[in-house]
């Protein structure tokens, strides 16, 4: 899949400025940058949720998982109804338990409401719903941003496992380089709507080419004294 010359404008403000990005099949491309750098606008444009100019080639069946698992599930729908939303009626009864299994949730949760679930469980439900759309490309926009570290690890493991298992292509967005590094094959660094650097993960982190990448690297929180 290829994004070419993608530009998103809100009124006079250019949120995404002429971005070109290649997402090879089965690859995970990480996008990092501070808030307001255009990461989410890029994600929403690729998902078709905001108007854009430019071209998106080879994009079939795109699904997205959102940042806030408390806002992305309809409070009045059960987990089963939410996960089954994109699935034909006759296949729902078999598909919903399978999808819940994929994200390592017990099938009994299908009858519950989002308010009865923890943040990590909700985010798994959101991932299951996206997988129900049988995506060729999965966009994950800051999906661990509102989760606890103890839960973040399990969600990241899950995402990595799913990618290997299902051969998904992914656009994985986060402001935390340590998180992106864990999931992505290549990392694109976004700054003020433009991609300032894009390369293999170890290279971007080991030998950053752009000043802004170095700023981001320095901002990753680290425990003092950790050897």
């Amino acid at each position: 899949m290829r994004i070419e010359g993608l530009t998103v404008r809100y009124g006079g403000f250019t949120a995404v400025d002429d971005v070109t990005l290649e997402i090879p099949d089965g690859h995970a491309v990480g996008v990092v940058g501070e808030s307001g750098s255009g990461k989410s606008s890029l994600a929403r444009a690729v998902s078709g949720l905001v108007p854009y100019t430019g071209r998106i080639e080879g994009a079939t069946r795109i699904q997205m998982v959102f940042q806030d698992p408390y806002a992305s599930l309809d409070p009045r729908m059960t987990i089963g109804e939410t996960v089954g939303e994109g699935i034909a009626k006759r296949r729902r009864a078999t598909e919903v338990p399978r999808l819940l299994g994929l994200v390592q949730l017990p099938a009994e949760l299908a009858g519950r409401y989002p308010r009865e679930l923890s943040g990590g469980q909700r985010q798994r439900v959101a991932i299951a719903r996206a997988l129900g759309g049988d995506p060729a490309l999965l966009i994950a926009d800051e999906i661990t941003g509102s989760l606890d570290v103890s839960v973040q690890g399990t969600v990241l493991n899950l995402v990595r496992g799913l990618r290997d298992e299902l051969g998904l292509s992914m656009l994985f967005i986060s402001h935390n380089l340590a998180v992106v590094r864990y999931v992505a094959d290549t990392i694109a660094v976004m700054h003020r709507g433009r991609i300032v650097e894009h390369g293999p993960t170890e290279q971007v982190i080991g030998e950053p080419a752009h000043d802004y990448t170095r700023t981001l690297l320095a901002a990753v929180p680290r425990l003092r004294g950790r050897s």
Binding site: R44, L49, M64, D68, S72, G86, A126, A130, G133
Partner: peptide
Amino acid sequence: GADYVAAARMLGV
């Protein structure tokens, strides 16, 4: 404008 509506739209509902 809620995310769950965006998600439903992407699923083709």
